[in-house]
Design a protein around this nucleic acid. Structure first.
Lengths: 333, 333
DNA sequence: ATGAAAGCGCTAACAA
DNA sequence: TTGTTAGCGCTTTCAT
C-alpha cells in the first residue's frame, strides 16, 4: 500500500509538503499542492491511520458501550450518538457489554489501548471499570445510567417520575392493585423505575405489597416467567407496569397464555415505545423515552470534553412521557 | 500515560524484555517476567494500540458495514459476527450505511485508513466502493447481498426460494390473488424476493399482474403507503407477501386502517421473524431468516481469509423457512 | 514556501 | 535469556 513517501517521490516534493498539502495547511504553493493531489489519487494513497494516530497522540473515534444492540432503546441512542459524532468528523465503535461487568471492562480496556478520544458508557453498575477510565484521563459520559461515585457528565431519562405517572394513570383508570415488573437489582434504571412505581403507589393510596413486585433480566424470556408468577398469584394485580419493551413481549405472551386481555383483565403499561405497539390488540400504552436525544446530547457533551472544556460535570435529565393507549383503559369493547 | 519504557525502567529491564514478557513469549526468565508484570500493574500500563498496529502492520479489528442498526435482521447478524470475532480476539466496529452508496464509501474509506484486518459488507449495490477494497487487498466478505462483479466470499439467504414457498403456501390456503410488496429496485434482496414471488405465482398458476407488485424503502413508512395503494386498488389482492419486517409494520397499520383483518380479509406473510409476531392478533406468518448464522458464517470466512487462506471464493447460501401462523390461514375464527 | 530530520511507542531482527 | 537498535508512516519543529 502506498505511503506518504511514495506520493512525495511521485510528486517530486518532500514528505512534509505532501503532509501539509493533504491536510490543507495554508502555506502550500497551489501548483505543488495540485501535483501532490494528483500523485495521491494516481497511487490510491490513503494515509495510514495508526501512524497518524501514533504521531498525533489522538484518534477521532468514540467508543459507545451499551448493554445490547438488539434492544431498540439502545440502537436509537446509537443513532443519536452517531449522527452528532459523524458531523464532527468522529467515528463511533459500538460494543455490547451484555450487562456483564467483565465484558464491559474488556471493552473499556480495548478502548483505552486504542486510545479512543472518548467513551460513552451505559454502565453495568460495576464501579471498577470507571476507575480505569478515570486513571487514564479519558473523557467519559454516562448514558442512561449514572456512573457510581464519579463526577462525569451524565445523560439520563427521568424514568422515576415517568413510572410514578404511569401508576397515577392506572389509578385514574380505576385499577386498584398495581404491580411492577422491573429489571435486575443494581441496574439503576431498574431500581429507578421501581422507586417511581412506589412513589406512585404511595401518592395514589393504592395498596402496597412486596408481592406485587417482580424482577427479571431486561429480556423477554425472564419477564415471561416473572409475569406468570405475578399473574397467577392468589392476590394478583389488576394492572402491571413493565420496565422495558423487551420485557413487555414476555409479559404479553404470558397474558395471552393465561387468557388475560390487556386493558380489560389486566392493565399494562411498558417502558419504551415500539413501532409494533400500535399493532397489538389492544394497542399498548407506553412510556416513550427520548432515546435518540439521549445519544445526541451525550455525544455533544463528550465532544465538548474532548475539545478541552473544563466546566463542572453536568447531568442532563431528559423526560419521558406516557402515551396512553387501550392496554391501560378499562372501558373498552 | 505510561509507556513501555516506563515499565522497563521500573522493572529494571529493557523494553524488549517488557514486550516479550507482556506478549507471553516463551523465552523470558520467570523472575523477570514477574517483575515486569508487577511494574506494569503498578503503572496501570496499557500498550499503545496505534503504536503496536503501526509496527505490526496489522490490526485486530473487523469492520461490519450494514444498512441500519435499527433493523433487527442486521443486529442479529451483528451478534453473530461479534461472537465469532470476539472468540478469535478481534474487535468489531459497526457502521450504518443507511443504504446510501456515499456513506458506504465513506466508511470503507475509514476502514481502509485504519487498516482494519477485514471488512464485512452488506453492499448498497454500488460497485465503486468494492474496487477500493480490492485495490487495497483488504479481505472482504459480502453479507446478505452479493457484491457486484467481484469474486469475494459471500453469505446469502435463499430468499428467492423462500418467497416462492410463501406464495405456494398462500395458494394452499386458498388465496387467489397474491400480491408482493418488496424493497427498492437494485437492492438484491428486494429483487430476489420479487423473483421468488414470481416463481411461486407461475408455479401455482395464480394470476400474474404487475398491478399486484409494489416497491418501497425497507421501512415502515414507505411500506404503509405502498400497501395502501395496493389494497385499495380496484382488483386488490387477497394476500400479500412483504419483503421485510419493518415493512410489515407499515402493511399491518394499513390493514388496520382499512379494516382488513389479516388472514380473513387479506393473507399476510412477511420476511423476518420478530419477537412480537406472535403477539399480534392474528399472529403473523413469517419467513424466518437465520440472521445470526449469516453473521457467524461470514465472520468465519473472513477470519479465514485474514489468516491467509487462498482457496476459491465461496458462496454460502443459508436457507430461510416459513413459520405458518394465523395471518395466512383463512379458516380462522 | 519548502525540506531535513526527529520522534510518537512498539516489535523484531540481530548481537551478545 | 537479554539488550541494542532499526524502523513502521506520519506530523511537526527547525532551518533554509
Amino acid at each position: 500500500m502506498a505511503t506518504i513517501s511514495d506520493v512525495a517521490t511521485r510528486a517530486g516534493v518532500s514528505t512534509a509538503t505532501v503532509s501539509r498539502a493533504l491536510n490543507g495547511k495554508s502555506t502550500v504553493d497551489p501548483a505543488l499542492a495540485a501535483r501532490v493531489f494528483a500523485a495521491a489519487a494516481e497511487l490510491g494513497y490513503r494515509p495510514n491511520g495508526p501512524a497518524r494516530n501514533l504521531r498525533k497522540q489522538e484518534t477521532a473515534v468514540l467508543a459507545l458501550i451499551i448493554a445490547d444492540v438488539e434492544n431498540p432503546f439502545f440502537t436509537a441512542i446509537a443513532r443519536g450518538v452517531e449522527d452528532v459524532a459523524h458531523a464532527a468528523g468522529y467515528s463511533v465503535v459500538l460494543c455490547n457489554s451484555d450487562d456483564e461487568p467483565e465484558k464491559e471492562r474488556e471493552y473499556i480496556d480495548v478502548a483505552l489501548q486504542e486510545r479512543v478520544a472518548g467513551v460513552l458508557l451505559s454502565p453495568t453498575g460495576d464501579s471498577e471499570s470507571v476507575e480505569l477510565l478515570d486513571r487514564h484521563a479519558t473523557p467519559v459520559v454516562a448514558v442512561d445510567r449514572p456512573l457510581p461515585n464519579t463526577t462525569s457528565d451524565t445523560v439520563l431519562v427521568d424514568s422515576r417520575l415517568a413510572a410514578a405517572e404511569a401508576v397515577q394513570h392506572f389509578a385514574d383508570q380505576g385499577y386498584r392493585r398495581v404491580g411492577c415488573l422491573t429489571g435486575p437489582s443494581g441496574v439503576r434504571t431498574a431500581d429507578d423505575r421501581l422507586a417511581g412505581y412506589r412513589d406512585g403507589v404511595e401518592a395514589t393510596g393504592l395498596p402496597v405489597s412486596e408481592e406485587l413486585v417482580r424482577r427479571s433480566e431486561f429480556k423477554a424470556a425472564g419477564a415471561k416467567q416473572a409475569a406468570h408468577s405475578l399473574l397467577t398469584a392468589p392476590d394478583r394485580p389488576d394492572a402491571v407496569l413493565v420496565a422495558n419493551n423487551m420485557m413487555a413481549v414476555g409479559v404479553l405472551e404470558t397474558c395471552a397464555e393465561l387468557g388475560l386481555r390487556p386493558g380489560r383483565d389486566v392493565g399494562v403499561v411498558a417502558f419504551d415505545d415500539a413501532p409494533w405497539a400500535t399493532l397489538l390488540d389492544p394497542p399498548l400504552t407506553v412510556v416513550a423515552q427520548p432515546a435518540y436525544d439521549v445519544g445526541a446530547v451525550a455525544a455533544q457533551l463528550l465532544l465538548g470534553r474532548i475539545s478541552g472544556e473544563r466546566a463542572e460535570a453536568t447531568t442532563k435529565t431528559l423526560s419521558a412521557h406516557l402515551v396512553a393507549r387501550a392496554s391501560s383503559t378499562r372501558q373498552q369493547a
